[in-house]
Design a protein around this nucleic acid. Sequence first.
RNA 1: GCGGCCAUAGUUCAACGGUAGAACUUCGCGUUGUGGUCGCGACAAUGAGGGUUCGAUUCCCUCUGGUCGCCCCA
Length: 417
Amino acid sequence: MASKYQAPRGTFDVLPADARARRRIEAVASAVFARAGYEPIATPAFEETELFERGVGRSTDIVRKEMFTFEDKGGRSITLRPEGTAPICRAYLEHGMHKLAQPVKLSYGGPFFRHERPQAGRYRQFHQLGIEAIGSDSPAADAEAIVMLDTLLKELKVSGVELRLGSLGSFEARRSYLEELKSHLHAHEDELSEDVRERIDVNPLRAFDSDDEGTRSVMENAPTLVERLEGEDAAHFNAVRAYLDVSGVKYTIDPTLVRGLDYYTRTIFSFVCDRLGAQSELGGGGRYDGLIEQLGGPSTPAVGWAVGVERILLALGDEGAGDPGMRPVFISFKWDAEVERQAMALATELRNAGVATEFDLAGRGAKGQLKHANRIGARLVVFLHEDGPAQVRDMDSGEQHELDPARLVAELTGGET
RNA sequence: GCGGCCAUAGUUCAACGGUAGAACUUCGCGUUGUGGUCGCGACAAUGAGGGUUCGAUUCCCUCUGGUCGCCCCA
């Protein structure tokens, strides 16, 4: 190991090639957001711990064991944000955004932090892009959000993606359903696999995912939440489905969809990808009509989602490479104080004129400079000599001629040769 | 938080318990101010700490990190 120091566990450095791919994802996302009227917002990387405890839910894994929490010098309990929705709702309330035209449509991106065991597609500092539409209970808002994520993934050309859709109903509907499911499971306890049995009261929905034969046969007759939906919950879900149908977005109903955050109500969805391994979710979200009220605000319906940037990168594989950028002009010069100053002056002039320009900073000889120019993909090389006129060389054709100082910029921008 | 596998130059890989090698990259050279190919040369490594041994890259333990899965989720 060359260096004594390493990036902390579960974190990573974004090196230039990776940074280009990320920049492309961000560019596509911000275009998708802007077209649908979602304005950018940014919140701090850390918040009062209580915001997440109340917002995400004290019983969730995130709050119970995954938060980076510390005390600041003023004795406040601070937590590195593990997700983006609660902070945005906090900002919505803090800045009185309920007085704006509703819904308030926001988009965001940035680092998030969860203290988990790292594995493929799972990091302790990871990046999400997301949107929130706050202040609308219309199923069209749910559908709009889902269509946007679908569009984003399609425009990024992520393949092998599948949309799973479900509904949790209202808090009340969900609670009574979960009781029903638990009693079904308890009634067949001896037929279940051990791990499912242990989690009956913690996470009964998980039983639907089991590979265990006995468990599967029990689950075939288990009630599902989607079929228990009634009244407005059922109407909302049907409307979302109809909107997705007219938008040409394909989905599969997944009655077993689970979200690990307490704030979800009604619509939930998840985009999964078969190229991802164990962490197969690219992104997901849903409706959270109770969250703002939970944070002390007025009852306000809302819907949103987040996608994992690292997950997208993983799903994209080698196809995710970003634009390598402009091919620069390279100024080759002799290591002579006067000529070096000319090179510096010329580089600045060209750069100010909008031309990507580089020159040697490593003391290379003439040959080394040209070799370097070739390596960095230079389009043209200007040779500066202490005597005689400057030359320009086209690196692709090898053609070389005298540079006319009067038409310097025009010539080097590729306007003509 | 729990399991399995793993850790050698910047990178990808070698090395029966006995002199750590190669390829790629980088730098230089192949005369006279000029690239790509080719040839030659140089720089450069056993993650950390213990133990066994005459001797450890190799065997054992701990730590650190990676990776895959569980869990969970973006």
